[in-house]
Every structure is written in structure tokens, then in C-alpha cells.
């Protein structure tokens, strides 16, 4: 193999290795891109850096709908206490979700939020939410879980209804593996 082939070989091996790394780099890149543009209805799943004290816009009222969904035969019962709520942008609002472990063994669950319409996701700020961490319930235990949130007044005016949906996942195995 002459010198020139050797030199080009170096570059030609570096490129696929770099692209392999780029493939993995796309994962955090995708997350950041989703958070910034509210793509796919993703909303912050960790407490806000600092709660912005926006002024309350009393002239406008937004209808918030709550929808729940269990994933892959998760046996717990999981539903919002009230399926609908009228709120003013900027005002802190509180909603409660009731969950009950109907099985006879302890389990852990993780709720994943999703906002619809997706454009509203970046204006929907959660100050405290049960989806920030896993919920561990003993057999037959029930729990009322609050979510405290507020909607940014800059929400585009053509949006009147926001649906906040939670999907409940069974992460007993995942949690067990973690600790």
C-alpha cells in the first residue's frame, strides 16, 4: 500500500467513526431541539430553573383538559379528579391525579407528560409535577398526586384549549435495576 493510499486511508476511516459518533450525538441534540421548539408535545420534565413570576392576564381564559393513559397493560387505576379546568394565563393552577396500585405487590411507575397542540408545549411551565420522579406504591396503596403549573401569557391567541396528557409506565424493573 503506497504512502498516498495510507494517507487517504486515515481520513477514510475517520469519517465513518465521526459519523458513528454523530449518530449518538443526535440523541441529546434531538432532546434540546424538541425542548426549544416544543416538538412532539414535549414539555419540561424537571422543575423549572426559577419560577418566572409572570403577571396574570385576567382578560383571557384557557380551557385545560386532562387525559390519562396506561401503557402496556399497566394495571394501576389512574385518572384526573377533574377532566377540565378554566385558568388564566400567568396564574399558578393546581390539578390532582389519583392513582392506585390494584395489584398485591409493590410497583414503581413513571408518568410521561405530553401537551397537545404541540405549539403550546413551550408556553406550558410545570412548577411541581409527579412526573418529575418515579412513584413507588405498595400493594393496594392509593395516592393523590398534584401538578402545579401556569401558562405563559405569550401563548399564541388562536390556542383556546390545551390538553395535558399523561401516560403511566410500569418501571418496576427499571427502578429495581437502578438501585
Amino acid at each position: 500500500m503506497d504512502a498516498r493510499t495510507q494517507r487517504s486511508l486515515v481520513w477514510l476511516v475517520l469519517l465513518p467513526v465521526a459519523m458513528f459518533g454523530f449518530g449518538f450525538a443526535l440523541v441529546p441534540l434531538y432532546d434540546v431541539f424538541c425542548r426549544v421548539t416544543g416538538l412532539n408535545g414535549k414539555v419540561n420534565t424537571s422543575p423549572l430553573a426559577m419560577p418566572v413570576s409572570a403577571k396574570v392576564d385576567l382578560s383571557r381564559s384557557i380551557n385545560i383538559q386532562f387525559v390519562t393513559q396506561n401503557n402496556a397493560n399497566m394495571p394501576w387505576t389512574f385518572q384526573p379528579l377533574s377532566t377540565e379546568m378554566e385558568i388564566h394565563p400567568g396564574a399558578d393552577s393546581r390539578a390532582v391525579f389519583r392513582v392506585k396500585n390494584v395489584t398485591d405487590h409493590p410497583m414503581s411507575a413513571q408518568a410521561i407528560p405530553s401537551i397537545s397542540p404541540a405549539e403550546a408545549a413551550q408556553y406550558f411551565h410545570k412548577i411541581q409535577c409527579f412526573c418529575f420522579n418515579q412513584q413507588h406504591l405498595a400493594a393496594r396503596e392509593s395516592l393523590d398526586m398534584p401538578v402545579i403549573f401556569y401558562v405563559d401569557p405569550e401563548l399564541p391567541d388562536y390556542i383556546h384549549t390545551i390538553t395535558l396528557g399523561y401516560t403511566l409506565f410500569d418501571v418496576t424493573k427499571l427502578a429495581a435495576r437502578a438501585n
Binding site: 440523541v27 434531538y30 414535549k42 401503557n71 410521561i112 418501571v171 427499571l174
Partner: peptide, 19 residues
């Protein structure tokens, strides 16, 4: 036990389709 593509652990099935 990672969850790149399962929503349970913070992943996203749509990420798979993009990649």
C-alpha cells in the same frame, strides 16, 4: 435497560424514526 426509544425512561420512538 437503556431507554433511547422507550418513552418510559425519557426516550422517544420518533427519535428512532429520525435516526
Amino acid at each position: 435497560g437503556t431507554s433511547y426509544f422507550s418513552a418510559a425512561g425519557g426516550g422517544d420512538p420518533v427519535l428512532f424514526q429520525h435516526l
